[in-house]
Design a protein around this nucleic acid. Structure first.
Length: 259
DNA sequence: CCACATGTTCATTT
DNA sequence: AAAATGAACATGTG
């Protein structure tokens, strides 16, 4: 479920389970998820060391080691972390084993996730050409970005090179809360609408984190729990389903008008 | 068998 | 150049 809120939850999970523990070894079940490194090199740099901290940028999790290397994880479409002793899973692609007998597994059924071992996070973010994190960007940059784009609002919101962290589900939620039609042209939104969008983006993402990214337990004013076939807008209207930028999009035709 | 899935990347077309 | 479209990746579910 890895959009920004999920990755933030993974970060908290990682911090509470895996910091300051001696690493015994790394086992890589699926080397193809490693980018620009090998299982041998990874094991060599982690063995005998400890994780000292972590932070999230967009949908990426950066984990710092005590030897100035960083393990970077991207969770693809289904990835997540699992700290365990015995109850493994068939979809763990790599696992870090600690000397206390516990393991931190990167579980990713579809293998869309990726892992890197790097030494320069700033350079990594620059090379990926990631935009500012959705919870860090200020309104001035946000406004400038949308003012110069002539395309549809939703794909822009989801483009990681513009703003990092928003995916298909939360883009729908943010646009719904902002009462903006997903096909609206970005540069046609007036300043008040853009400010609304900016505020709802932060509010939605922060609420999602507060609710542990458990979509079914989000407040009733959210679109996401109703985002399914025959789903109704929280205000009662039937939702419309269209494709935008190749992705399935749900919106309320009553509350999100196209101008 | 078919369509679809919380993501990213690349090629092609407009 | 920018924007839109479609496919590919791997693997499961309905």
């Amino acid at each position: 479920m890895p959009e920004l809120p999920s990755v933030e939850i993974f970060k908290k999970y990682f911090d509470s389970t895996s910091l300051n523990k001696e690493i015994d070894n790394v086992e890589v079940q699926n080397p193809e998820i490693l980018i620009n490194t090998t299982p041998e090199f990874l094991n060599n740099k982690l063995e005998g060391h400890e994780f000292k901290g972590s932070w999230r940028y967009g949908k990426y999790l950066f984990i710092d080691l005590d030897n100035s290397y960083y393990l970077v994880l991207h969770f693809g479409m289904n990835g997540y972390l699992k700290y365990f002793q015995e109850d493994s899973s068939p979809y763990i692609r790599l696992q870090v084993e600690f000397t206390n007998g516990y393991k931190l597994g990167f579980d990713d059924i579809r293998k869309f996730g990726k892992a890197w071992l790097i030494s320069d996070p700033i350079k990594f973010i620059q090379e990926k050409n990631l935009g500012p994190d959705a919870l860090e960007i200020n309104f001035k940059s946000f406004k400038t970005l949308f003012k110069k784009k002539t395309g549809q609002i939703k794909p822009i919101l989801m483009n990681q090179n513009f703003i990092a962290g928003i995916g298909n589900l939360y883009a729908d939620e943010i646009l719904y809360q902002s009462r903006i039609h997903p096909l609206s042209k970005a540069n046609k939104l007036d300043k008040a609408k853009l400010y609304k969008l900016f505020q709802e983006m932060q509010w939605v993402l922060n609420k999602a984190i507060e609710y542990q990214d458990k979509i079914d337990s989000l407040p009733s004013s959210f679109l996401l729990p109703h985002r399914n076939l025959n789903g109704k807008c929280p205000k009662g209207e039937a939702l419309n389903i269209i494709k935008v930028g190749g992705r399935t999009t749900y919106f309320c035709p009553e509350r999100q008008k196209l101008f």
